[in-house]
Computed example of a mutant assay.
Amino acid sequence: MSTAKAERLLIADDDADLVEAYVLFFEASGYIVQTAVDGAGALAAYYAWHPAVVILDIQMPRVDGHAVAKEIRRMGFTPRPFLLAVTALSAAAEKAESFKAGFDHHFVKPARLPVILAAIASRPII
């Protein structure tokens, strides 16, 4: 992806090693990446930066990923950001809660980054 077309991607997870791996992968795939270590930081970064794609862990300190997704959806910014949950939560009820919160996808850790990238690449651009 060229820099002229590079999209902004926000990643929020309290696992620093995982975030580092995500950053390396997505920057190599042409994305401009910002990170946050908790939900409050993710909301602050979203307000300031308005990324096209947001990857959120669900179980984060201060504000969980579901609350972050709900708040992003409540804001109603256009274009509508693409929200992906990447979490250890794997039960059907937890996946349903992610979709109810406004996520477009729910991936269970350890999620394969090429699969996440493919989901992002195949999203409808509105």
Rank of each mutant, 00 (worst) to 15 (best):
A6M: 11
E7G: 05
R8A: 13
R8G: 14
R8D: 11
L9Y: 12
L9Q: 00
L10M: 02
I11A: 03
I11R: 02
D15F: 00
D15A: 00
A16N: 13
A16L: 13
A16R: 14
A21G: 14
F25R: 06
A28S: 15
A28C: 07
A28M: 11
S29M: 09
G30M: 07
I32A: 15
I32W: 12
I32M: 14
Q34K: 14
V37W: 10
G41E: 08
L43V: 06
A45F: 04
A45K: 11
A48N: 11
A48V: 04
W49H: 09
W49E: 02
H50M: 06
H50F: 13
A52M: 10
A52Q: 15
V53F: 06
V53K: 01
D57H: 07
M60C: 06
M60E: 04
M60G: 05
R62H: 07
R62P: 00
R62M: 09
V63R: 02
V63Q: 02
V63S: 02
A69G: 14
A69M: 13
E71P: 13
I72A: 02
I72Y: 08
I72D: 07
I72S: 02
R73M: 10
R74T: 06
R74N: 12
F77L: 10
F77Y: 10
F77R: 08
T78W: 12
P79C: 01
P79H: 02
R80L: 09
F82G: 03
L84D: 10
V86K: 06
T87M: 08
L89H: 05
L89Y: 06
S90Y: 10
A91Q: 14
A92L: 12
A93P: 07
E94M: 06
K95Y: 06
A96F: 01
A96K: 11
E97I: 00
S98N: 00
F99I: 03
F99W: 03
A101N: 04
G102C: 02
G102A: 11
G102I: 08
F103G: 11
D104K: 02
D104M: 05
D104V: 00
H105T: 11
H105G: 00
F107D: 05
K109F: 09
A111G: 09
A111S: 11
R112C: 09
R112T: 07
